[in-house]
Design a protein around this nucleic acid. Structure first.
Lengths: 114, 114
DNA sequence: TTAGAGTATGTAGAAGATCGAGGTATACCC
DNA sequence: GGGTATACCTCGATCTTCTACATACTCTAA
């Protein structure tokens, strides 16, 4: 296994919403997808994943149905609700705003002449 | 009042280290600096600021002395230790890696090639 | 002198997120 | 049968953050 990811708090929810927004999937696949796409930078332990999914479902941002996977097994497929899609947009905008600000600060130099 | 900032977990420490690395300052000024530079995107409540400073000091990343401010008052001036400077570099690299990965994921589109 | 705004520090307690560790069960291949 | 991968789940420890509160000094203005 590669190193830890240590995603900042709150980011996991955003990423899950994003991936689910690309098409309904089950939890295990979400984690795999995130890991693949980020080239192993983002890794989601199951102890973080499932609580996050339940949290999002309880908040009405995700809805779920049990379906069969391609391999003939049962899995819980999540999809975005209307509320979830709105939340995804809000959080995406918020992430851009914040990460932009952090990047700005990190680029400051001692000269100060930004 | 502008809106809340809701900095992701761990980011505050990084930003504090960065600002202190630009030159020794006291806590109150650090918070102001962050707010100014980020154009009010980043705001640091005192209840977050001071615990963070104590945390960083306890971990040996910051050191502090009491000095007078320009206005004739006592304030605790923080500076980076050697360990703190190393930590700043590590965390900066880590932030870039992670925020890059998150940005990558957020830019995914349903077609996969939009 | 009294009141208020701004500067400057700090603590306490609640809320929330993350993660390691554990558990259950099925499918597939050898 | 045994091992690996898939797929779900919970618990508890730990840490961060934030709201609210508490202290105290400086300066200005009524």
């Amino acid at each position: 296994m590669p190193e830890k990811s240590d995603l900042p708090q709150g980011t996991l929810d955003l990423l899950i919403l994003k991936v689910v927004g690309l098409g309904a999937t089950h939890g295990y696949a979400i984690a795999q997808r995130l890991q693949q796409v980020s080239r192993d930078v983002v890794q989601v332990p199951q102890g973080s994943l499932y609580p996050a999914l339940h949290r999002l479902e309880n908040r009405g941002l995700l809805a779920a149905d049990w379906k069969e996977t391609g391999t003939g097994r049962e899995a819980k497929y999540y999809r975005l609700t209307k509320k979830g899609r709105a939340q995804l947009e809000t959080e995406t905008a918020s992430w851009k705003r914040l990460s932009g600000a952090v990047g700005l600060i990190l680029r400051l130099s001692e000269g100060g002449a930004e």
